[in-house]
Nucleic acid binder design. Structure first.
Length: 426
RNA sequence: GGAGGGAUGGCCGAGAGGACGAAGGCGGUUGUCUUGAAAACAACUGUGGCAGUGAUGUCACCGGGGGUUCGAAUCCCUCUCCCUCCGCCA
């Protein structure tokens, strides 16, 4: 959510930002209109309330002085005012609801240096690390060798839960668990993160806090009877960890990391990314979330992104950092870097991390504030998050890039502390 | 799942239709006293909206929402959460 005062005073900048984002539906003009209406009604109502408050006090006094007839006369007038207040309140309620809804549907304006383009064609590769692996045979995609090695079972996954579900088995399941643990360990021990185990179903208002609702409900799974939503990423629960709080001076920055399953409806066209575990309804992801002071946001984004990149480097996986263009930016992000890893079997770059700065956009929605100094006014924190990393796609790259002519796979040495001498699969 | 009891400021806790944004205590800040500290004493001490350059004014907020009333922390409805007992359970 944006600061309405900023919106009032920066119409031009707002219009430009929305144009850059290529979001033609963003109801920012409507929001400003409703804001004006809302404040008008608010002032009318308050004036009447003031009148009624003083009147009501009078009535109390008059009764105490046994001046019943005067009191009753006043009562009648107050009753009238009460009616007017009720009318204004009703109008205000409806205006307020529309206003709030409009505000919740206005996206975050991009940072100055985000590449301006209408869609993902304008994304810019900023850096590329590592050499693409070369083979003297044709590298296979994981959906071919996964079942052969009996480490991924698609058929039984589909039979059990439907399309885009799978079983990881044996070395496959173990690899995911080991990677998840190792990612967590690196973030905790080297990057100063605190591990949390968050709820994986949350209330609707938590989804609003991170910006997944009201606009993107169709991407989420939910309980049919109760207000429980399955998290599409740990970002949702972990960001809400400090909802409605005022953090005392000295608490920021806060770094959290969690490894959770993520549930996504993935209503993409039926054929797209249908094979393998590139795009599935349930996957494991290690997510980093930061709460920081506003001035430090950009530096924190850089260190957050580096924390994810380091993992890819130690796994010897070639990757690139991509600056997401304005038209491809998510609703809540002010700036976003994607990390894409090369998968030799699929022959494509797979997104394994998104690192975003939200400024105060989420903090306003979730009402997360901090006190800059003792006794100072509370201000909104800035939030960031990034995957560090999404498991299935890292597994894809790891398996596909390290396959050998005989069909076996040799995992990188960095995993030796977790695998011992069992670095070979198949 | 069933029965009952609760939710009040940073914390504890009073409050039962009118002088209540809310007693009292704790905590915090400042001052007096003191070489300094402690103690004692005194004053101050919540959040947000709107209007105003400003002093300030005004409105809202006693878990959330709705209602009754001239007037609600207080009465009614509803939701959420917490506690106790019973049932069930990894």
């Amino acid at each position: 959510m944006l600061d309405i005062r900023w919106m009032r005073e920066n119409r031009e900048a707002l219009a430009q930002a929305m144009a850059k984002l290529n979001d033609l539906e963003a109801p920012w003009e409507l929001a400003l209109e409703l804001d004006e209406k809302r404040r008008g009604l608010l002032q009318q109502g308050e004036k009447l309330r003031e009148e009624r408050n003083t009147g009501s006090k009078q009535i109390g006094l008059l009764f105490r002085e046994k001046k019943a007839s005067e009191a009753n006369a006043l009562k009648e007038r107050m009753s009238q005012i009460g009616g007017e207040i009720a009318q204004i309140d009703e109008a205000l309620r409806s205006v307020d609801a529309s206003y709030h809804d409009a505000m919740m549907r206005i996206p975050n304006p991009p940072e100055e240096d985000v590449p301006v383009a209408p869609d993902e064609e304008g994304n810019v590769v900023l850096t590329q690390w590592g050499e693409l692996p070369e083979f003297d045979f044709t590298p296979q995609p994981h959906w071919d060798f996964g079942p052969e090695l009996d480490i991924i079972d698609f058929e039984r996954g589909v039979a059990t839960a439907g399309s885009r579900f799978y079983f990881l088995k044996g070395a496959g399941a173990r690899l995911q668990r080991v990677l998840s643990n190792w990612f967590l360990d690196v973030h905790i021990q080297e990057h100063g993160y605190t591990e949390v185990y968050p709820p994986m179903m949350v209330r609707g208002h938590a989804m609003e806090g991170t910006g997944n609702l009201p606009k993107f409900g169709e991407n989420l799974y939910r309980d049919a009877e109760e207000d429980y939503w399955f998290i599409p990423t740990a970002e949702v629960s972990v960001t809400n960890l400090h909802r409605d709080e005022i953090l005392e001076p000295g608490t920021l920055p806060l770094y959290y990391v969690a490894s959770t399953p993520c549930f996504r409806r993935e209503k993409v066209s039926a054929g797209k990314d249908a094979r393998g575990i590139k795009r599935v309804h349930q996957f494991q992801k290690v997510e980093m979330v930061k709460f920081v002071e506003p001035e430090t946001g950009r530096d924190e984004l850089e260190s957050l992104t580096r924390a994810a990149e380091v993992l890819l480097e130690r796994l010897e996986l070639p990757y690139r950092r991509v600056a997401i263009a304005t038209g491809d930016l998510s609703f809540v992000a002010a700036i976003k870097y994607d990390l894409e890893v090369w998968a030799a079997g699929c022959q494509e770059w797979l997104e394994v991390s998104s690192c975003s700065l939200f400024r105060d956009f989420q903090a306003r929605r979730a009402n997360i504030r901090y006190r800059p100094r003792d006794g100072a006014r509370p201000e909104y924190v800035h939030t960031l998050n990034g995957s560090g990393l999404a498991l299935p796609r890292v597994i894809i790259a790891l398996l596909e890039n390290n396959q050998r002519a005989d069909g076996s796979i040799r995992l990188p040495d960095v995993l030796r502390p977790y695998f011992g001498d069992e670095l070979e699969i198949g």
